[in-house]
Design a binder for these strands. Structure first.
Lengths: 356, 356
DNA sequence: CTGAAAGCGCTTACAG
DNA sequence: CTGAAAGCGCTTACAG
């Protein structure tokens, strides 16, 4: 194949010095391509004079190494994969933003993947990331088995699980202490005098769903109350439907604990549509603390996850793996925080926690 | 360099048939690598028998073409760049999700870039996308000049502007009809009897900011009222501060029109903190209609952009460019929709628009 | 410390 | 229709 020239090299001023390769720079600097490569890659032991000549030549022709060639040679791309269920969930928007920032600082690109919480899409995306020879990936796994994750680990591509862990013991993970977080929320409601506390949970086959449910069930049983848990699938629409049914029950719950922000949105809509008031008719506490939590009617009592910190920690763990500065598995669990506002039926502005 | 074997090829079962190259498949199928390549790339005119043998061999060894090699040969990566100011803004979360979905269906990957609304970061990211040899990019430009965009166009990399246009006449764009949208909102407030309508705008050097301001100013002047516009920089914290000042004015505005969802959040906080009520003390209408708009206190009257449709349209325009099925520039402007709820001081459940 | 050369794994113009 | 060969633009082991 003959070397191609830019379409319009004749009639346009050569504003972009495209097509300049390492050989051109080498010629200009009077050294070999190998030396140019060494200078650009910061290999030590290059004669200072050469280094300067190379840098001058690079500047003169505005040389930029061809990343595609570098990738092929090195058999890797300086890319971080980010796999979440849905970037529209503010929980993940915030996490992805933090990851992207850290990647940018580290000089890496971010490839975004939405799985819609399905193992198949996750597997497809992880396979794709493997094909791209990414440096590593942060994934919020759709299932306990961690579809496709084992394969990447086999290939030596590090993975850090975010939000949830998987059964594979080789993987690093950063999660929230969901059991404890929901326990606190439940205890807070109990302390306020609620006994008929219903729970609107997420998918039980997802770790966060299972753990939050456990935190609720355990606390209710410990307190000698009968739990009532429903499944809202972590989705706003489903949560809305389920809440409608709940509200129709003859002996209605006096409080509702909701397992994530999307479902809280749905539950709120249903309560509103039923013409009921929060917290007078039903108290409400939600997991996740999105920006709008304090502005809805009434301001929402929530269990907040330290999303930004969790994401940054996940990135740190991943970078350690990429740089090879750590080999033992790390699993970090971060505490959730109860933020008492008005929807639980009691606002203690200066109160951070709850009675023990 | 000697061919490298997987670290543990000796002690682990070869679960992944890594390192299989096109040559291996060719040997197994009894054809040349060129033929394997042709079959895999759907080049017509390959003897049916060969095609079958190749497919069988591919399946047998679970061959996956090395994407990095393909990229180098083709001098491009099947990647779409997405450049927004901040993925945490639900407006962009929604757009990015729609873009990612369409990319996935088209078989492309998405690279995510956050510019924080700065021309420098935008330039750096676009340069990076050029280095990656992406197929194209959808960008919500930080400035009118479109920092770095011209360079990509020069390289033949198609760009579609989203949300805002730039001065460069070569670029495709999908925007909302901001002037008209804000005009409708302003007229609605006027129709409700408000005369002292203040405007909390975004950055004027950003097209959406300039257009929405214009829609407000023009409508106020046409109606013979004196406009009062402030700048909240499209940020929640700034908007909050500005609103605090507004509320302290001796002869306060009776209505506030806010130019995007982040600032609406900030304005709501300020109104709340001042102990004032919406709409009794001050009516509120915001541009953007995030999921929480109907759940805040009171439900927010908004001017909604058809974000999903806008993003899908942008992707369609980009795919046309990538596939080379269109060469003339296209600029699509989509209408905004006034959604009347309670914060404007009047709820007309069955009313879609407003008086003309 | 430096250069010549091999090679990363494909695709495709060329010749048959 | 098919294969042998060149080449995409780098990096790096090797020899000096």
């Amino acid at each position: 194949m003959a070397k191609r020239f830019p379409d319009s090299s004749a009639d346009k001023p050569a504003e972009r010095s495209a097509n300049v390769g390492i050989a051109d720079v080498a010629r200009l600097a009077g050294v070999s391509p190998a030396t140019v490569s060494r200078v650009l890659n910061g290999v030590p032991n290059v004669r200072e004079e050469y280094r300067e000549r190379v840098m001058a030549a690079v500047a003169e022709v505005d040389y930029r190494p061809n990343r595609l060639a570098q990738n092929l040679r090195r058999q890797k791309a300086e890319v971080i994969g980010v796999v979440v269920s849905d970037i529209e969930n503010p929980h993940f928007s915030e996490a992805v933003r933090a990851i992207e920032d850290a990647s940018f600082r580290a000089g890496y690109r971010v490839m975004l993947c939405n799985t819609d919480e399905t193992a198949e899409k996750q597997r497809a995306y992880l396979q794709m990331l493997a094909d791209e020879r990414v440096l590593g990936a942060i994934v919020s796994p759709a299932d306990r088995e961690g579809a496709g994750i084992g394969e990447l680990l086999d290939l030596g591509i590090p993975i850090v699980c975010f939000d949830r862990t998987i059964d594979d013991p080789r993987v690093d993970a950063v999660t929230g202490d969901n059991v404890e977080g929901v326990r606190r929320a439940t205890e807070h409601l109990l302390w306020l005098g609620h006994e008929r506390i219903a729970y609107l949970g997420g998918r039980r086959d997802v770790e966060t769903g299972a753990e939050r449910l456990e935190g609720y069930l355990r606390t209710m049983r410990d307190a000698g109350h009968v739990p009532f848990a429903m499944d809202g699938g972590f989705r706003a629409d489903t949560a809305s439907e389920v809440t409608v049914k709940l509200l129709r029950q003859p002996k209605r719950a006096s409080a509702l604990l909701v397992a994530n922000n999307l479902m809280t949105l749905g539950a709120l809509r249903a309560v509103r549509a039923a013409g009921l008031r929060v917290p007078e008719d039903i108290a409400l506490v939600g997991v996740d603390d999105p920006p709008w939590a304090s502005l809805v009617d009434p301001p929402l009592t929530t269990v907040a996850q330290p999303v930004r910190e969790m994401a940054q920690t996940a990135m740190s763990l991943l970078l350690e793996r990429i740089r090879g500065t750590r080999t033992e598995v790390r699993r970090v669990v971060m505490p959730l925080e109860l933020r008492v506002r008005d929807s639980c039926g009691m606002s203690l502005k200066s109160d951070e926690g709850t009675a023990e």
